[in-house]
Amino acid sequence: MVIGGGLTGIETSAEIAYHYPFLDVELVAPEVAAWLPDASRTRIARKLVDAGIVLRTGRRATAVHPDGVATDAGWLPSACTVWAGALAVPDLARRSGLPVAPDGRLRTDETLVCLGHPRIVGAGDAVAPPRHVAGHLRMSCQAAMPLGAHAADTVLALIRGERPVALSIGMVGQGVSLGRRDGFAQATHRDDTPRRFTLSGRAAALVKERVCRFTLSSMRFPRAYRWRSGATPTLPAPTPTTVR
């Protein structure tokens, strides 16, 4: 049994069903791919069912036990449970006395410099830049990688005594692996809202595999890494900060 209707839960259940077709695989979640348009959600759900996965939607897991899962709609027996639920933000920033958002993410300015602490730079899923530059960014390698690269550029600018530039990240799409020979891809605008174009089947699986390989190659050759730009705000003219 897999708990979670996000990308991790969807891909995990599909991979298990593909590699071990003799197992009974169930996916438990309030919804499957809830962030996608209705047509895309329906298509993904149909593919999961076609792969032999039982969808237990409309349920929220409340506790996991060695022999099953307790949900708000009753008990579900399970010989093996994989947790793929939502992530929580570490409390390091809050415990350090730094400014944080209500969910605990580190607050930064448009350049990823911590508010009120010019020597601290944040990046990744646990930071909360202003919404006008990062409100569209979701937890994903598509956002985390350019956030990390931009944070590195900000650190270098501060060391040189230069003015860091504002964050600018445009999203491209959302790829879902549904086993080795099937997948689904949803194209998006720069602000991550869905386009009309989707890709399905073997072609989508190849696109997803190419994205994964690109992620690895970007780590091997970081100087060649580039990302799609988004709308960049006009920054005020602050006094350059020098890190010594």
Results as ranks from 00 to 15, higher is better:
Thr242His: 14
Asp191Asn: 15
Val172Leu: 15
Thr108Phe: 08
Ala166His: 06
Gly85Val: 08
Pro129Glu: 08
Gly4Ala: 06
Glu209Lys: 15
Met171Pro: 03
Trp83Leu: 13
His65Asn: 11
Ala185Cys: 13
Gly4Leu: 07
Pro222Lys: 08
Ile44Ser: 01
Ala101Lys: 06
Lys47Gln: 14
Gly116Met: 08
Pro233Leu: 09
Arg202Ser: 11
Arg228Leu: 14
Ala151Cys: 11
Cys114Ile: 03
Ala205Ser: 13
Ala205Cys: 10
Ala101Ile: 05
Leu76Pro: 00
Pro21Thr: 03
Met171Thr: 13
Val69Tyr: 04
Ala126Arg: 00
Arg228Glu: 14
Val243Lys: 00
Ala86Ile: 11
Thr62Tyr: 02
His19Glu: 12
Gly148Ala: 08
Arg195Thr: 11
Pro222Leu: 10
Pro129Gln: 11
Asp103His: 10
Ser177Val: 03
Leu48Val: 07
Ala224Asp: 15
Leu36Trp: 03
Thr12Pro: 00
Asp109Ser: 05
Pro37Leu: 04
Glu162Arg: 09
Cys212Tyr: 04
His189Cys: 07
Gly97Gln: 07
Glu31Met: 06
Arg46Glu: 13
Ala61Ile: 07
Ile16Leu: 14
Pro146Thr: 10
Arg119Ala: 13
Leu112Ala: 05
Ala93Glu: 11
Leu27Ile: 02
Ser96Lys: 05
Gly183Ala: 06
Leu137Ser: 06
Met171Ile: 07
Val2Arg: 02
Cys141Gln: 06
Tyr225Pro: 10
Ala185Gln: 02
Pro99Ile: 12
Phe184Glu: 02
Gly104Met: 08
Leu115Tyr: 00
Val49Gly: 01
Ala70Tyr: 00
Val113Arg: 14
Pro233His: 10
Ala63Gly: 10
Glu162Cys: 01
Pro236Asp: 12
His19Trp: 10
Arg223Gly: 09
Arg46Thr: 12
Ile53Lys: 01
Gly74His: 08
Glu31Asp: 15
Asp67Leu: 06
Leu147His: 13
Val69Ala: 06
Arg160Tyr: 00
Leu27Gly: 01
Arg107Ala: 13
